[in-house]
Design a protein around this nucleic acid. Structure first.
Lengths: 221, 221
DNA sequence: AGTGCTATGTATAATGC
DNA sequence: TGCATTATACATAGCAC
């Protein structure tokens, strides 16, 4: 088990190369992390490999964006003589942390609110807790949007009877949570009872989304 | 000259920190290059420090652009909010995080999709990119929910003419900076053009939500 | 401040399961 | 194939100039 001196060249053996990659990637990320902490340095790294489905990113997607933005702002780095002393370091770090905290909080709150609202709209479950006034709000809101949609359809030129809608959209994104037995009967008459939305699932086990979802996510494509 | 085990924390001594930074930066770049060569991997790294006028970049500016383009071409990354905690790095965390990565990714994807859908409904902005068929889906979906709301209203016993709706709800949750101007006046123009939703803002700068929002968030209260 | 040096902590190549 | 182990190569903290 005598270790050879490492030859700096492409490793031809497939499995050996993969093994080396995994080990070294791990070590590299650790080193980056250490440098970042020990010296309070802004550093980002992206590792694209055929061995990982997703690129390995340090410190995070948003972190990369941040460092990248700083990188692009190079002209303003003229004032590079600013040294980091203990006090400014702590102050800076606290400010940064607070900033991130608030941002994260806001983001989480927004997501949570949105999720709940959407579940309310989709599941018609939370409606039970709403007052008349609240329902007026909601109805007004939805009618506004419905009006927008109708206008959009007319502008395109399509003729559409509501009864003839045959949506191909069958299920929507949501976390399937077992609902209580009590409210299982949703008396919507002709239309199907609202049920907990679920993921699309394809044969390979991956989630699949309607095309218009995908288009919304990646408008450039 | 006995070497201590390095404690993973910010180095308070200025010169020691700088010396460590220089050494480690050099070593880090060497490691990155080795990984890149040994395994033929696309890697890029940016190190922004107060010790260098220009950010240290590997492999080059254009190389960063290339890897970054590749990174951005992976749509899934948009929602990958998983990140290594820069403050408290734990070695084991990588392994655990990788285990939970897929689950987290799925969860984030769901949230993101839901948010986007809701923004589409509320902002009527993404509608421009939708086809007739997509709009049919959306219209059907909304009409379903509108029907539910109407039934709910009737069940309660309220009589409601759509034109008389005077919603107190003016703005809804969305990403964006809270506007600090107190919007005490409620310009309830009958049908107002859809505009980007924003937070409620109160005098103390905190976000404020309609009561029915709050009730949805905290049903127990 | 920026060298260079060495002892020692760490990363990891090779091996076995 | 992946994970654990171990011996070894390598990185680098501390010191001297």
């Amino acid at each position: 088990m005598t270790r050879k001196k490492v030859k700096l060249a492409y490793i031809t053996d497939d499995s050996a190369r993969k093994a080396t990659f995994k080990k070294r990637k791990k070590g590299l990320i650790k080193k980056v992390e250490e440098l970042s902490i020990l010296c309070d340095i802004d550093v980002c790294m992206i590792i694209c490999s055929p061995y990982d489905a997703q690129p390995e990113v340090y410190p995070s997607s948003s972190g990369v964006q941040r460092v990248l933005a700083r990188f692009k702002n190079m002209p303003e780095i003229v004032q590079s003589k600013k040294m980091v002393n203990q006090e400014s370091f702590l102050r800076n770090r606290i400010a940064k942390a607070n900033e991130q905290l608030e941002k994260q909080r806001e983001e989480n709150r927004e997501k949570e609110i949105t999720r709940i609202m959407f579940q309310t709209l989709m599941g018609a479950k939370g409606l039970l807790g709403l007052s008349i006034v609240d329902l007026k709000d909601l109805r007004w809101l939805i009618e506004q949007k419905l009006m927008n949609i109708k206008m959009r359809i007319e502008r395109i030129g399509g003729t559409l009877a509501a009864q003839n809608c045959k949506p191909r959209l069958m299920a929507l994104a949501a976390k399937g949570k077992p609902k209580s037995e009590g409210e299982s009967a949703t008396p919507v008459g002709a239309v199907e009872a609202a049920r907990p939305p679920r993921f699309y699932a394809s044969v390979d086990g991956m989630h699949r989304w309607p095309q218009w979802f995908m288009r919304l996510i990646n408008p450039q494509e």
